[in-house]
Design a protein around this nucleic acid. Structure first.
Length: 255
DNA sequence: ATGGCTACTCCTAGTAGA
């Protein structure tokens, strides 16, 4: 069971690359973020032609999440509890292949101390609340997506210069640790504990070429999936070439 | 020291991303 997450930064702009990646890697599940398209305009056909089912939860211009799976998807839940039609489309839960798959696009937060930064922390608290209310850490569950938090200094290209700034601040890291305290492990770190491993690189200043990035796209798993996890990695090659997303796909395989 | 790119839109200039 191969499960992947990828912030595609517009599914319409990225469509050829996403479809090519699916055709090559053949994951069982791909969770996408920043699809930036209303549900009626989602380009479903190329996914379906490759044998994928789709669940989508999008909006105009910003945000939007979608999950493609080669297996049936049941118990679909859109958004966090208490959210309404005006709220940003950031969460899509499905059960597929016997695993609860929680696809999230965590708010960016813009600047530490800002109003939207406080909203980001509150959003992470509500995400933890959803896990507590609906799930158990003893069931197979993966929480994956663009967390917009680099968990530790080793996930940051220049932890000294970026100390305390957005994605790297202690309040964000504490909020993410609290989500993980539900009973989640960072799948990529099961296999690679070194520095220099990132999932996002700024489009500007040749940041990708110089490997100056952040690891903010995470695949977090409960203990039953830790036991089944055979590999997990960042597909850095998918960030190279023509018209890439600024994020790379992250994936893990489970026995 | 700054900003360096990309994608979006009822505004092709302003916003947001991270």
């Amino acid at each position: 069971m191969l499960i992947a997450t990828w912030n595609v930064n517009s599914v319409r702009m990225r469509l050829p690359r996403v479809i090519d990646w699916l055709a090559t890697r053949r994951p069982d599940v791909l969770c996408m973020q920043e699809t930036k398209v209303v549900d009626g305009d989602f380009p479903r056909e190329p996914f379906e032609a490759l044998g994928y089912r789709l669940e989508v939860f999008g909006q105009k211009t910003y945000n939007g999440v979608a999950t493609a799976s080669r297996h049936p998807m049941t118990d679909v839940v859109r958004g966090l509890p208490g959210e309404g039609p005006e709220d940003a489309k950031r969460v899509l839960e499905v059960t597929t292949g016997g695993i609860r798959v929680v696809n999230v696009y965590v708010p960016n937060g813009q600047e530490v101390g800002s109003e939207v930064f406080a909203a980001k922390l509150d959003w992470l608290r509500r995400l933890r609340g959803r896990l507590d209310a609906a799930f158990s850490p003893s069931e197979p569950l993966v929480l994956l997506g663009d967390m917009n938090v680099a968990p530790e200094d080793r996930d940051v290209y220049d932890p000294v210069r970026l100390a305390g700034t957005i994605h790297c601040s202690e309040p964000e890291r504490e909020a993410l640790r609290d989500v993980m305290a539900f009973g989640l492990r960072d799948a990529v770190r099961l296999f690679n504990d070194g520095p220099g491993l990132y999932s996002w690189w700024d489009y500007r200043a040749a940041m990708f070429r110089r490997n100056l990035g952040l690891r903010i796209d995470l695949l977090l798993v409960t203990e039953p999936l830790v036991a089944r996890c055979r590999l997990s990695e960042v597909d850095k090659a998918a960030r190279a070439g023509e018209k890439p997303s600024d994020h790379a796909p992250v994936f893990a395989e489970f026995a």
